[in-house]
Simulated assay, not measured.
Amino acid sequence: MVDVITMGETMALFTPDSTGLMRYAHTFTRKFGGAESNVAIGLARLGHRSGWITRVGDDELGKAMLSFVRGEGVDVRFARIDREAPTGIYFKELRREGDVRIQYYRKDSAASRLSPADIDEAYVSQARFVHISGITPALSESCHEAVFKLIEVAKKHQIPIVFDPNLRKKLWSETKAREVLLAIAAQADIVLPGVEEGAFLFNERDPDKLGKRFIELGAKLVVIKVGAEGAYYVDENECVHVPGYRVERVIDPVGAGDGFASGFMSGLLDNLSIEAAVQRGNAVGAMVTMVNGDVEGLPGKEDLTRFIAAPAEDVSR
Protein backbone atom coordinates (compact mmCIF):
# COMPACT_ATOMS: atom_id res chain seq x y z
CA MET A 1 0.00 0.00 0.00
CA VAL A 2 1.18 3.54 -0.81
CA ASP A 3 -0.01 6.89 0.48
CA VAL A 4 0.36 8.89 -2.74
CA ILE A 5 0.69 7.79 -6.37
CA THR A 6 1.89 10.22 -9.00
CA MET A 7 2.73 9.89 -12.69
CA GLY A 8 4.98 11.82 -15.04
CA GLU A 9 8.35 12.41 -16.62
CA THR A 10 11.66 12.87 -14.86
CA MET A 11 14.73 13.87 -16.81
CA ALA A 12 18.45 13.90 -16.34
CA LEU A 13 19.39 17.42 -15.25
CA PHE A 14 22.71 18.98 -16.22
CA THR A 15 23.81 22.15 -14.45
CA PRO A 16 27.01 24.08 -15.32
CA ASP A 17 29.55 24.10 -12.53
CA SER A 18 30.05 27.80 -13.23
CA THR A 19 27.61 30.71 -13.03
CA GLY A 20 26.93 32.80 -16.12
CA LEU A 21 26.04 32.09 -19.73
CA MET A 22 26.03 28.35 -20.37
CA ARG A 23 27.98 28.78 -23.61
CA TYR A 24 31.08 29.36 -21.49
CA ALA A 25 30.59 26.30 -19.28
CA HIS A 26 32.93 23.35 -19.75
CA THR A 27 31.92 21.07 -16.89
CA PHE A 28 28.47 20.07 -15.68
CA THR A 29 26.94 18.30 -12.71
CA ARG A 30 24.34 15.63 -13.46
CA LYS A 31 21.27 15.34 -11.27
CA PHE A 32 17.65 14.33 -11.84
CA GLY A 33 14.48 16.40 -11.79
CA GLY A 34 10.80 16.16 -12.64
CA ALA A 35 7.72 17.54 -10.91
CA GLU A 36 6.14 14.21 -10.06
CA SER A 37 9.26 12.42 -8.83
CA ASN A 38 10.17 15.56 -6.86
CA VAL A 39 6.84 15.27 -5.06
CA ALA A 40 7.27 11.53 -4.53
CA ILE A 41 10.77 12.00 -3.10
CA GLY A 42 9.60 14.88 -0.90
CA LEU A 43 6.88 12.67 0.57
CA ALA A 44 9.26 9.76 1.10
CA ARG A 45 11.72 11.98 2.98
CA LEU A 46 8.88 13.04 5.27
CA GLY A 47 8.13 9.43 6.13
CA HIS A 48 5.33 8.60 3.69
CA ARG A 49 4.96 5.86 1.11
CA SER A 50 4.92 7.23 -2.42
CA GLY A 51 4.68 5.53 -5.79
CA TRP A 52 5.75 6.87 -9.19
CA ILE A 53 4.42 5.74 -12.58
CA THR A 54 6.65 6.60 -15.53
CA ARG A 55 8.73 5.37 -18.45
CA VAL A 56 12.48 5.75 -18.85
CA GLY A 57 14.79 4.87 -21.71
CA ASP A 58 16.81 1.68 -21.84
CA ASP A 59 19.97 3.73 -21.40
CA GLU A 60 22.44 4.58 -18.67
CA LEU A 61 20.59 7.76 -17.70
CA GLY A 62 17.32 5.87 -17.31
CA LYS A 63 18.96 3.15 -15.23
CA ALA A 64 20.71 5.71 -13.04
CA MET A 65 17.43 7.58 -12.59
CA LEU A 66 15.52 4.51 -11.45
CA SER A 67 18.33 3.63 -9.05
CA PHE A 68 18.31 7.17 -7.65
CA VAL A 69 14.55 7.46 -7.17
CA ARG A 70 14.32 3.95 -5.72
CA GLY A 71 17.16 4.81 -3.37
CA GLU A 72 15.13 7.76 -2.08
CA GLY A 73 12.48 5.32 -0.90
CA VAL A 74 9.96 5.75 -3.74
CA ASP A 75 8.11 2.70 -5.06
CA VAL A 76 9.14 2.39 -8.73
CA ARG A 77 7.61 -0.98 -9.57
CA PHE A 78 5.46 0.71 -12.23
CA ALA A 79 8.32 2.73 -13.72
CA ARG A 80 8.78 0.87 -16.98
CA ILE A 81 11.84 0.70 -19.22
CA ASP A 82 11.08 1.65 -22.82
CA ARG A 83 13.56 0.10 -25.26
CA GLU A 84 12.48 2.26 -28.19
CA ALA A 85 12.87 5.80 -26.81
CA PRO A 86 15.49 7.70 -24.80
CA THR A 87 15.42 9.26 -21.36
CA GLY A 88 14.80 13.00 -21.60
CA ILE A 89 17.36 15.57 -20.48
CA TYR A 90 17.36 19.24 -19.57
CA PHE A 91 19.82 21.96 -18.69
CA LYS A 92 19.51 24.49 -15.89
CA GLU A 93 21.45 27.68 -16.61
CA LEU A 94 22.26 29.76 -13.52
CA ARG A 95 23.06 33.04 -15.25
CA ARG A 96 23.21 35.07 -12.06
CA GLU A 97 21.50 35.12 -8.70
CA GLY A 98 17.77 35.23 -9.31
CA ASP A 99 18.08 34.44 -13.04
CA VAL A 100 17.63 30.72 -13.72
CA ARG A 101 16.79 29.47 -17.22
CA ILE A 102 15.73 25.99 -18.31
CA GLN A 103 16.22 24.28 -21.68
CA TYR A 104 14.45 20.95 -22.26
CA TYR A 105 15.32 18.14 -24.67
CA ARG A 106 12.35 15.83 -24.17
CA LYS A 107 10.71 15.44 -27.58
CA ASP A 108 9.82 11.77 -28.25
CA SER A 109 11.29 10.74 -24.88
CA ALA A 110 10.38 7.46 -23.23
CA ALA A 111 8.05 9.20 -20.76
CA SER A 112 6.19 10.90 -23.61
CA ARG A 113 5.05 7.37 -24.57
CA LEU A 114 3.11 6.85 -21.33
CA SER A 115 -0.36 5.53 -22.14
CA PRO A 116 -3.48 4.19 -20.39
CA ALA A 117 -1.87 0.73 -20.50
CA ASP A 118 0.65 1.97 -17.90
CA ILE A 119 -2.12 2.47 -15.31
CA ASP A 120 -2.53 -0.58 -13.07
CA GLU A 121 -5.95 -0.28 -11.44
CA ALA A 122 -5.17 -2.60 -8.54
CA TYR A 123 -2.08 -0.56 -7.70
CA VAL A 124 -3.84 2.80 -7.89
CA SER A 125 -6.88 1.62 -5.97
CA GLN A 126 -5.03 1.27 -2.66
CA ALA A 127 -3.58 4.81 -2.60
CA ARG A 128 -4.80 7.48 -0.17
CA PHE A 129 -4.21 10.29 -2.70
CA VAL A 130 -3.46 10.55 -6.41
CA HIS A 131 -1.27 13.49 -7.42
CA ILE A 132 -1.48 14.84 -10.98
CA SER A 133 0.61 17.51 -12.64
CA GLY A 134 -0.46 19.59 -15.63
CA ILE A 135 2.87 18.84 -17.29
CA THR A 136 2.12 15.21 -18.14
CA PRO A 137 -0.89 15.71 -20.45
CA ALA A 138 1.11 18.26 -22.44
CA LEU A 139 3.80 15.74 -23.44
CA SER A 140 1.78 13.77 -26.01
CA GLU A 141 -1.70 12.54 -26.85
CA SER A 142 -1.00 9.18 -25.20
CA CYS A 143 0.14 10.99 -22.03
CA HIS A 144 -3.07 13.01 -22.12
CA GLU A 145 -5.05 9.77 -22.33
CA ALA A 146 -3.00 8.24 -19.50
CA VAL A 147 -3.78 11.17 -17.19
CA PHE A 148 -7.51 10.86 -17.76
CA LYS A 149 -7.31 7.11 -17.27
CA LEU A 150 -5.61 7.73 -13.92
CA ILE A 151 -8.38 10.19 -13.03
CA GLU A 152 -11.02 7.64 -14.03
CA VAL A 153 -9.50 4.95 -11.81
CA ALA A 154 -9.10 7.34 -8.88
CA LYS A 155 -12.72 8.44 -9.19
CA LYS A 156 -13.92 4.84 -9.42
CA HIS A 157 -12.21 4.01 -6.13
CA GLN A 158 -13.07 7.33 -4.46
CA ILE A 159 -9.44 8.37 -4.07
CA PRO A 160 -8.98 12.15 -3.65
CA ILE A 161 -7.16 13.78 -6.57
CA VAL A 162 -4.63 16.54 -5.87
CA PHE A 163 -3.93 18.60 -9.00
CA ASP A 164 -1.04 21.01 -9.51
CA PRO A 165 -1.55 22.84 -12.84
CA ASN A 166 2.22 23.30 -13.28
CA LEU A 167 1.70 25.36 -16.41
CA ARG A 168 4.40 24.93 -19.10
CA LYS A 169 3.53 27.22 -22.02
CA LYS A 170 6.40 25.92 -24.16
CA LEU A 171 4.83 22.47 -24.35
CA TRP A 172 1.52 23.38 -26.00
CA SER A 173 -0.68 26.20 -27.24
CA GLU A 174 -2.32 28.44 -24.67
CA THR A 175 -5.75 27.46 -25.94
CA LYS A 176 -5.07 23.75 -25.53
CA ALA A 177 -3.37 24.25 -22.17
CA ARG A 178 -6.33 26.20 -20.78
CA GLU A 179 -8.83 23.65 -22.07
CA VAL A 180 -7.04 20.60 -20.63
CA LEU A 181 -6.00 22.15 -17.32
CA LEU A 182 -9.55 23.29 -16.63
CA ALA A 183 -10.87 19.83 -17.54
CA ILE A 184 -8.52 18.23 -15.01
CA ALA A 185 -9.30 20.85 -12.38
CA ALA A 186 -12.98 20.02 -12.77
CA GLN A 187 -12.21 16.43 -11.75
CA ALA A 188 -9.87 17.27 -8.87
CA ASP A 189 -10.72 17.38 -5.19
CA ILE A 190 -7.82 19.69 -4.29
CA VAL A 191 -6.16 22.17 -6.67
CA LEU A 192 -2.76 23.79 -6.01
CA PRO A 193 -2.34 26.66 -8.49
CA GLY A 194 0.17 29.46 -8.38
CA VAL A 195 -1.39 32.89 -8.66
CA GLU A 196 0.06 33.29 -12.17
CA GLU A 197 -1.55 30.02 -13.25
CA GLY A 198 -4.83 31.26 -11.86
CA ALA A 199 -4.47 34.45 -13.87
CA PHE A 200 -3.80 32.37 -16.99
CA LEU A 201 -6.83 30.15 -16.48
CA PHE A 202 -9.39 32.71 -15.25
CA ASN A 203 -7.85 36.16 -15.78
CA GLU A 204 -8.16 36.59 -12.02
CA ARG A 205 -5.52 37.26 -9.34
CA ASP A 206 -7.56 37.89 -6.22
CA PRO A 207 -7.08 34.72 -4.13
CA ASP A 208 -10.64 34.62 -2.82
CA LYS A 209 -12.24 35.11 -6.23
CA LEU A 210 -9.74 32.78 -7.87
CA GLY A 211 -10.36 30.05 -5.33
CA LYS A 212 -14.10 30.37 -5.79
CA ARG A 213 -13.71 29.85 -9.55
CA PHE A 214 -12.05 26.50 -8.93
CA ILE A 215 -14.70 25.64 -6.32
CA GLU A 216 -17.38 26.35 -8.92
CA LEU A 217 -15.68 23.82 -11.21
CA GLY A 218 -15.96 21.15 -8.54
CA ALA A 219 -12.91 21.33 -6.28
CA LYS A 220 -13.47 21.01 -2.54
CA LEU A 221 -10.30 22.89 -1.57
CA VAL A 222 -7.99 25.27 -3.42
CA VAL A 223 -4.56 26.32 -2.19
CA ILE A 224 -3.16 29.33 -4.06
CA LYS A 225 0.60 29.83 -3.87
CA VAL A 226 1.77 33.45 -3.80
CA GLY A 227 5.54 33.03 -3.61
CA ALA A 228 7.38 34.45 -0.63
CA GLU A 229 4.08 35.68 0.82
CA GLY A 230 2.97 32.10 1.40
CA ALA A 231 -0.39 30.73 0.28
CA TYR A 232 -4.14 31.14 0.63
CA TYR A 233 -6.51 28.25 1.09
CA VAL A 234 -10.06 28.61 -0.10
CA ASP A 235 -13.11 26.40 0.39
CA GLU A 236 -16.82 27.06 0.18
CA ASN A 237 -16.77 29.01 3.45
CA GLU A 238 -13.54 30.94 3.79
CA CYS A 239 -10.33 32.29 2.33
CA VAL A 240 -7.38 32.17 4.73
CA HIS A 241 -3.87 33.49 4.24
CA VAL A 242 -1.00 31.39 5.64
CA PRO A 243 2.25 33.44 5.69
CA GLY A 244 5.36 32.15 4.01
CA TYR A 245 8.91 31.92 5.35
CA ARG A 246 11.55 34.57 4.79
CA VAL A 247 14.52 33.31 2.80
CA GLU A 248 17.51 35.63 2.87
CA ARG A 249 19.01 34.25 -0.31
CA VAL A 250 17.18 32.24 -2.96
CA ILE A 251 19.72 29.92 -4.58
CA ASP A 252 17.44 28.01 -6.94
CA PRO A 253 13.65 28.50 -7.13
CA VAL A 254 13.04 25.52 -9.43
CA GLY A 255 11.15 22.77 -7.62
CA ALA A 256 9.73 24.99 -4.87
CA GLY A 257 6.16 24.31 -6.01
CA ASP A 258 6.79 20.57 -5.94
CA GLY A 259 8.22 20.96 -2.45
CA PHE A 260 5.07 22.79 -1.43
CA ALA A 261 2.90 19.99 -2.81
CA SER A 262 4.84 17.30 -0.95
CA GLY A 263 4.78 19.28 2.31
CA PHE A 264 1.08 20.04 2.02
CA MET A 265 0.10 16.45 1.24
CA SER A 266 2.35 15.26 4.06
CA GLY A 267 0.32 17.46 6.39
CA LEU A 268 -2.93 15.94 5.14
CA LEU A 269 -1.52 12.42 5.58
CA ASP A 270 -0.50 13.32 9.14
CA ASN A 271 -4.06 14.57 9.81
CA LEU A 272 -3.01 18.18 10.39
CA SER A 273 -5.50 21.00 10.01
CA ILE A 274 -5.65 22.59 6.55
CA GLU A 275 -3.85 25.66 7.87
CA ALA A 276 -1.07 23.59 9.42
CA ALA A 277 -0.74 21.51 6.23
CA VAL A 278 -0.39 24.71 4.16
CA GLN A 279 2.19 25.97 6.65
CA ARG A 280 4.16 22.76 6.17
CA GLY A 281 3.93 23.22 2.41
CA ASN A 282 5.20 26.79 2.71
CA ALA A 283 8.14 25.62 4.81
CA VAL A 284 9.20 22.84 2.45
CA GLY A 285 8.89 25.16 -0.55
CA ALA A 286 11.09 27.75 1.17
CA MET A 287 13.70 25.15 2.09
CA VAL A 288 13.91 23.93 -1.52
CA THR A 289 14.84 27.42 -2.77
CA MET A 290 17.87 27.52 -0.49
CA VAL A 291 19.69 24.67 -2.27
CA ASN A 292 20.76 24.14 -5.89
CA GLY A 293 18.80 21.27 -7.42
CA ASP A 294 15.21 20.09 -7.70
CA VAL A 295 15.27 17.60 -4.81
CA GLU A 296 18.48 18.34 -2.94
CA GLY A 297 16.74 20.81 -0.61
CA LEU A 298 13.78 18.59 0.26
CA PRO A 299 13.92 18.04 4.03
CA GLY A 300 13.40 15.11 6.32
CA LYS A 301 10.87 15.42 9.13
CA GLU A 302 13.47 16.45 11.74
CA ASP A 303 14.94 19.22 9.58
CA LEU A 304 11.47 20.45 8.67
CA THR A 305 10.36 20.59 12.30
CA ARG A 306 13.48 22.56 13.20
CA PHE A 307 12.97 25.00 10.32
CA ILE A 308 9.33 25.66 11.19
CA ALA A 309 10.24 26.22 14.83
CA ALA A 310 13.10 28.65 14.13
CA PRO A 311 13.71 29.17 10.38
CA ALA A 312 16.22 31.98 10.87
CA GLU A 313 18.34 30.31 13.52
CA ASP A 314 21.14 27.79 13.26
CA VAL A 315 20.11 25.48 16.08
CA SER A 316 22.64 22.79 15.16
CA ARG A 317 25.46 24.62 16.99
Rank of each mutant, 00 (worst) to 15 (best):
M7Y: 08
G8N: 02
G8S: 06
L21D: 15
L21W: 11
R23A: 07
R23C: 05
A25P: 13
N38F: 00
I41Y: 02
G42T: 05
G51N: 09
W52Q: 07
T54C: 12
D58Q: 13
S67Q: 09
V69N: 04
D82R: 01
R83M: 11
A85G: 03
P86G: 13
P86Q: 06
T87I: 03
G88N: 02
R95L: 14
K107L: 08
A110T: 01
S115D: 04
P116A: 05
A117M: 10
I119C: 01
V124Y: 01
Q126L: 05
L139F: 07
L139Y: 02
K149G: 02
K156L: 01
F163N: 14
L167C: 05
A177W: 04
L182T: 14
I184W: 09
D206C: 01
R213F: 08
V223P: 02
I224S: 04
G227K: 06
E236Y: 12
E238V: 14
R246M: 07
E248H: 13
D258G: 10
A261K: 08
S262A: 15
D270C: 13
A276M: 08
N282E: 03
M290I: 11
V291E: 13
G293K: 00
F307V: 08
D314R: 15
V315H: 09
S316C: 04
